[in-house]
Design a protein around this nucleic acid. Sequence first.
DNA 1: CAAGATTCTGAAACCGCTTCCTGACTAGTG
DNA 2: CACTAGTCAGGAAGCGGTTTCAGAATCTTG
Lengths: 334, 334
Amino acid sequence: MWENRGVVVTIKDVARLAGVSVSSVSRTLAAPESVRPGTRERVLRAAAEVGYSPNAAARALTTGRTYNVGLVVPDLANPFFPTVVKAIQSRAREFDYSVLLVDTDEDPTAEVELIRKLVKQVDGFLLCGPRAPDEDLRSFIGETPVVTVNRRVGPIPSVICDHTDGVRQAVGHLAALGHRALAYVGGPRASTVNRERARGLRTMCASMGIELVDLGNATPNFDGGAAAADLVLAAPVTAVLAYNDLQALGLVSRFRERGASVPEQISVVGFDDIPLAGQVSPRLTTIAQRGDLLGRAAVDLLLDLLQDRVGAAGSRRVMPTQLIVRDSTGLAAV
Amino acid sequence: MWENRGVVVTIKDVARLAGVSVSSVSRTLAAPESVRPGTRERVLRAAAEVGYSPNAAARALTTGRTYNVGLVVPDLANPFFPTVVKAIQSRAREFDYSVLLVDTDEDPTAEVELIRKLVKQVDGFLLCGPRAPDEDLRSFIGETPVVTVNRRVGPIPSVICDHTDGVRQAVGHLAALGHRALAYVGGPRASTVNRERARGLRTMCASMGIELVDLGNATPNFDGGAAAADLVLAAPVTAVLAYNDLQALGLVSRFRERGASVPEQISVVGFDDIPLAGQVSPRLTTIAQRGDLLGRAAVDLLLDLLQDRVGAAGSRRVMPTQLIVRDSTGLAAV
DNA sequence: CAAGATTCTGAAACCGCTTCCTGACTAGTG
DNA sequence: CACTAGTCAGGAAGCGGTTTCAGAATCTTG
């Protein structure tokens, strides 16, 4: 039924109509200047007339380039990722690349398997906050081009945000508000971002004489935050930083249930600046990562890689990070 | 640099190693029972040994099947879509299909163009709440298999939620709480879902003697809701239904700013039951669509279509809808 | 205007896989 | 045991492009 979908027009049809050989058609389309203007004209006219568009599979077969990129995300339901994915998809399209999406549901094992399965179908991968262990990711080196987003693994090209600087801004902000002790609700253990933030936090707090209570790893979503809220209240702190905004929202929600008002009794800082952060009440103070910039830069880096036009120096790109002060932080309770 | 990514193992390598012809290898992999056990054994062993996996492009070229589906969404940043996309991606994977994702940014024109561009690269399309006009979508009939999700266009196979029933439940709920006049904040004009809800609402209200104020079309996001909030307060109503949860959240937020408490002064009902709906405060009463069911059913329908195993009868699938009563609805203000 | 240098063009091979067709071999039958 | 029917495996064509190579056409130049 769908076999003869419309009329399948191939390069031969164009060649016949234009009265030239298929090679000339191919050449015209690939490098118009390599063909005489007269021929070019006829070919283009013919192509337009029959509405020709080359068959991607055939092209991929000969050239070895699929014009597909594999995009792997741990959980699309985390509002941070759609921002990145949108940017990636749109930037890829500008270069006529298509995006093969894979959601791994936070499963590190599935992640690696799925990547392996797709290797032949794409020119390279964009791994957003991959959860697989370093050595698994390393195994792709030399096998297929890979760019990681918000994760750093050995020499693998990456695009990340300057989380350390983000943390610096946040701690500075809290210190200025008089907070002397704060808690950190962590994210996935495997997350580079989490480690970087935790480390940055320790350094900053140490250098500023602020007490830091590490509450361990919580799941990176609303419920994870809500679950950690009671730990926070039990700790001798006046402010808390969460691994991401979803957790922060969970914290706020549970604080409210417990009757602890934000920011009067406790200040809350999130990470990511997801769309909702500025819309809920109280509006969330958060450290913004520009997901759109990350996504765009990741595509550019991968494409550069595919063209061999990237020195080792350029294989790591760092995006800025910015503290957005809203209503969930205030003067430290006395 | 990436040209010789690893060792490219082809069907020939397997054939050589197994001491058979390529045709036998191909046959073994496609239809194991068509080959003698001894041969089968050797082929499989050889394939495993060299880690063979067929080249998708080559296969697509000969068979005409790409094992890709095109997934088109208007805006991934709307939290309803990730749910659907996740389900689609995961269900597709079960059948070894890959998902080519396209986000159209709510642009009806781009939508059609992008679909056209991808036609050759996929076996069919899943259009989630497409925004393009009916006639454009109709033009794909016979050209490429298409399944629409939450949109009905002529004979195009579709999966939708029973929105009329959802509306029925919601109006029943509000009526029982004593509301006699309610407002509707609409969504995109082109949205089938929006039309269906509006129509259902009119019918229901008429039959129950409830007054309905149609506030026209608002953008289907938080800001659209916030913008409509003042219209609601100016109307003689005690409850409002929004086109989606994002709008509902916007409404609540603006109501709060205006000092109108929810649900004491005004009840709010959303649509979709996005993850956040149950987590914000007040928790949102909403009409749930099971995005996961929709996504899964859409994949199944498309695959059935591709196998020619779907009668005209089965080409429309309707998913249930359910009112989730939470805290944003209460007794009508007197 | 002829000879050589250049630019264009077409024929053909090839990418990796599927599938049709044919021949070889096995099994079944009288 | 000879003959037919039925299995199974291999050769080869072909999917729709790209690219190499060599020949044809055009342009220079003396």
